[in-house]
Computed example of a mutant assay.
Amino acid sequence: MFRIGIIGSDNSHAEIFAKLCNLKDKDTQEYAFPDCRVVGIYGHDKYRTEEVAKNAQIEFIAQDPREFMGKVDAVMVVFRHGDLHKEYALPFIEAGIPTWIDKPFTIKNSDAREILEVAKKHKTLVTGGSTCKYAEDILMAKNIVEGQDEIGKVKTAVISFTTNFENEYGGIYFYGAHLVEMALEIFGYDVKSVTSSKSKDCVTAILKYSDYQVTLNFVEDLMEYNLIIIGEKGTIVRNIDISNVYKLGFERFVNMLRTKKQPYPLENIYSSVKVFNSLVESYKENLSIQVPGN
C-alpha cells in the first residue's frame, strides 16, 4: 500500500485527489486505486484542512509537514500559490520521497530549476503540473501534429482556454499554467520566443517555433475551450474536454509509484515555467521575449 500525504488544503485539488484515492467509485463500488491511500494532510487553514480530511476520509492531520517523514511513501504538494511549492516540496525530494507538485509547478524559473537539480541529485521521482495536458483531446492533437498524416505539416494553430487575472495566488499564473502546458504538450517544448499583449479580459500570446507560430488566448471566465490546428492538408477544430483530467493525472502519479519510473520529463515542466514567464514579461514590457536556456 502506497501511503500518500497531501500538503496544502486550500486547493480543491487536495480534496479531489484524496477522494479519487480514498473513496469507492459510486458506480462500481470499487476503489479506483486499491493500492494507494491518502493517509494524512497538512494545510494552513485549520477549518479547511479539517473539512477536506472529513470529506475524503483522511485520518491524520499534521500540524507540521515534517510529521509525514516516516509515515508516507509519497507526497502531493498542492498549495494554490506556486511560490509555496519549492519550500514544501524540497525536504521530501531531498529525502528521496516521490513528489507530485501541482500547477503552477512554480512561478519563478529559479525555483523550478532548483527542484529539477535536487531531484536529479537525490534520484527522486518528481512529477506534476497541470493535469489538463493529459486530456484525451490534447493527446489526440499531439498525435496528429507528430504524425502529420491527417493534416500534413502544421502551418499555425490557436488554443483558447479560461483564466483568472485577479486573485491572491499569483494572478495569471494560478490558472494560466493549464494553457501553457497543454500547448507545449501538443507542439513541443522548443519555443524560441514569445510575443504577447493584454486587454481587459484576455492575454493573447504568440509562441514562435522554428517552422510555425501558435497563438494562445487566455480568456477571463471562458466557458468553452477549443483548439484549431491548420496544416498543409487540412484543419482540425476541436473542443477540449477536461472533465476527466484529475483522474488521468493521478493515474500518472500512481503509475510512477508503481513502476518507479519518471512519467514525464522534468525538463519539460521546467520549459513550461520558462515559457510562461517569458509570456508574462512580454506583455508587461511590450516586447518580444526570447525564451531563456538553462
Rank of each mutant, 00 (worst) to 15 (best):
G8S: 08
R113H: 03
T124Q: 07
V78F: 07
P98Y: 15
C21I: 15
I61C: 03
A89W: 07
A89M: 08
M69W: 03
F60D: 00
D25I: 00
S12F: 03
E94L: 04
A89H: 07
A135E: 07
M69C: 00
E87C: 05
T131Y: 11
A95V: 15
K86R: 15
K26V: 03
S110V: 09
L23F: 11
G128K: 12
A74Y: 03
L20W: 12
C21D: 12
D27V: 15
A135S: 12
V39C: 04
A112D: 04
K26M: 03
I93R: 05
Y88I: 12
L84V: 00
P98W: 15
F92R: 01
S9G: 08
A62Q: 10
D27P: 07
D25V: 02
P98Q: 13
G43Y: 04
I101A: 02
V39M: 02
T106G: 06
I97T: 10
V52F: 02
R37T: 09
E15S: 05
Y134V: 01
A119K: 13
T127F: 06
R48P: 01
E94Y: 03
P34W: 14
I41V: 11
L139P: 01
N55E: 10
A14I: 08
E59S: 11
A53K: 08
S9A: 15
R80H: 09
L23Y: 12
K123C: 10
A135H: 04
S110Y: 06
T127K: 09
E59A: 14
A32H: 12
R113M: 10
P65G: 11
K121C: 09
E50D: 07
I61E: 04
R37I: 10
K46H: 10
L23D: 14
K121G: 05
H85F: 01
A74I: 01
K120L: 14
V77A: 10
H13K: 04
D83V: 11
I61M: 10
I115Y: 01
I93F: 03
T99D: 04
K108P: 04
L125K: 12
N109M: 01
R37W: 05
Q29G: 14
R48M: 09
G129I: 09
F60G: 00
T124R: 08
D64V: 09
I61F: 11
F33P: 13
V72P: 00
K26H: 12
T127S: 14
L23E: 15
F33A: 08
A135C: 04
Y134M: 11
K19N: 09
A53Y: 04
Y47P: 00
F60L: 13
F105L: 13
R48A: 02
L23S: 13
Y47S: 13
E117L: 11
G70Q: 02
P91L: 09
R113D: 06
E15R: 05
I101H: 01
A95C: 07
A74P: 01
C132P: 00
F79V: 13
E67N: 05
T131F: 09
M76A: 15
V39S: 08
I115S: 03
I58S: 09
D102S: 12
G70N: 03
V39Y: 00
W100T: 01
R37A: 09
V78D: 05
D27N: 13
C21G: 12
D111R: 04
G129P: 05
T99G: 04
F17N: 11
K86D: 02
K133C: 12
V77E: 06
Y42G: 01
V52H: 11
H85K: 06
K24M: 13
K133A: 11
E30H: 11
K120G: 07
K120S: 05
K108G: 01
